[in-house]
C-alpha cells in the first residue's frame, strides 16, 4: 500500500503539471517568458508576506501574483514603457519585497525558507484541493475558449482585428497564470516554479506547429517531469522540487535535439 503522503504528492504533480504547462503554452507562444518569472516572484513575495504577518501564504501568493498580472499587462499595453522594461521594473520590485519580508520574519524562518524549494511531499489536503480546482478551471477554460486563446496567443493584433475581445482573453490568461503559479508555489518552490511553467511548453513547441497538439504535449511533459522528479526524489533522497525542475530541463534538452524544426532550419 502506497503511503498517503506519496499519493498526495503524485496528485499534486498531476495538477501542478497540468495547470503550469497549460499556462506555460500561452506564455511561451506569446513570447512572455519573462512575465512568468515576474509573476512567480510576485507570488513568492506575497507568500513570504503571509509568513511574516502570520496569515496563509497561499492567500498572499494569490493576492500578489494577481496584482502583478494586473500591473504588468497595462504597463506593457500602454506603450509608455517597453514590455521588457515594465516587467523588469515590477520584477525587481517584487524580488526586493520578497527579501524584505524574509528579513522581517522573526524566528527560525523554516516555513519561509521552504517556500524557496517547495515541499510537495508534505502538501496539505487543502493545498491539494486548490491545486486541483485551478487545474480543472484552466483545462476547462482552454477547452471552452480554445479558438479565442489560440488566436490571441499566436497573433493578438489579428485576434483583435477579427472581433475577438483579445484584451479580455489576454488578461484572463494572465490571471490564470498568476493563480496557477500561486497555488503551485508551496509544492514546487518559489525559485523553481517558473521552470515548470516554461520548460514543458517550450519542449512541446520544439516538436509541433499545431497549437492543440502543443497543449497536449506540454501537459504530458509537465506531468511527466513532476512524476519523474518525484520518483527520482523518492529513490535517491533528492529535494523533490529540484528533481522535478531538472527533469523538465532534461526533457527540454531531449526535445530540442529531436526537434524537426531544428533539422528543418539546418
Amino acid at each position: 500500500m502506497m503511503p498517503q503522503y506519496l499519493i498526495n504528492a503524485i496528485l499534486a504533480g498531476l495538477f501542478a503539471g497540468v495547470s503550469c504547462s497549460l499556462a506555460g503554452a500561452f506564455v511561451v507562444t506569446m513570447h512572455l517568458s519573462f512575465l512568468g518569472v515576474c509573476i512567480a516572484h510576485a507570488a513568492f513575495a506575497g507568500a513570504l508576506m503571509g509568513v511574516w504577518l502570520g496569515f496563509d501564504p497561499l492567500l498572499g501568493a494569490l493576492f500578489f501574483s494577481l496584482g502583478a498580472s494586473a500591473l504588468v499587462g497595462p504597463l506593457a499595453d500602454r506603450g509608455e514603457l517597453s514590455p521588457d522594461a515594465s516587467i523588469g521594473i515590477v520584477f525587481s520590485f517584487m524580488i526586493g519585497l520578497a527579501f524584505l519580508f524574509l528579513g522581517l520574519t522573526p524566528g527560525s524562518r523554516t516555513e519561509a525558507l521552504s517556500l524557496f524549494w517547495g515541499s510537495i511531499l508534505t502538501i496539505s489536503p487543502q493545498d491539494l484541493l486548490f491545486l486541483g480546482m485551478v487545474a480543472v478551471a484552466v483545462t476547462l477554460g482552454i477547452l471552452v475558449f480554445n479558438k479565442e486563446i489560440h488566436a490571441t496567443a499566436c497573433h493578438r493584433n489579428v485576434a483583435a482585428a477579427i472581433g475577438i475581445p483579445a484584451t479580455l482573453v489576454f488578461y484572463a490568461m494572465l490571471f490564470a497564470t498568476g493563480a496557477t503559479i500561486a497555488v503551485s508555489l508551496r509544492s514546487i518552490g518559489g525559485l523553481l516554479i517558473y521552470s515548470l511553467v516554461v520548460n514543458p511548453a517550450a519542449s512541446a513547441l520544439q516538436l509541433t506547429y499545431r497549437f492543440n497538439l502543443m497543449l497536449l504535449l506540454s501537459v504530458l511533459f509537465g506531468v511527466g517531469a513532476c512524476w519523474i522528479g518525484l520518483a527520482a526524489s523518492y529513490c535517491w533522497d533528492l529535494p523533490a522540487g529540484a528533481a522535478i525542475v531538472l527533469s523538465s530541463s532534461v526533457l527540454f534538452a531531449v526535445c530540442t535535439v529531436m526537434s524537426p524544426k531544428r533539422r528543418a532550419q539546418q
Binding site: 507562444t29 471552452v144 479565442e148 489560440h150 497573433h155 477579427i162 472581433g163 506547429y209
Partner: peptide
C-alpha cells in the same frame, strides 16, 4: 515557430462572428 498553419489562420476569420462557446 508559431504554432498556427495557414489554414488555421484563414479559418480564424470566422471566429469573431461565431462568438463565445461555438467551435
Amino acid at each position: 515557430r508559431l504554432p498556427m498553419t495557414v489554414r488555421e489562420t484563414v479559418q480564424l476569420g470566422a471566429a469573431g462572428r461565431l462568438g463565445w462557446f461555438h467551435r
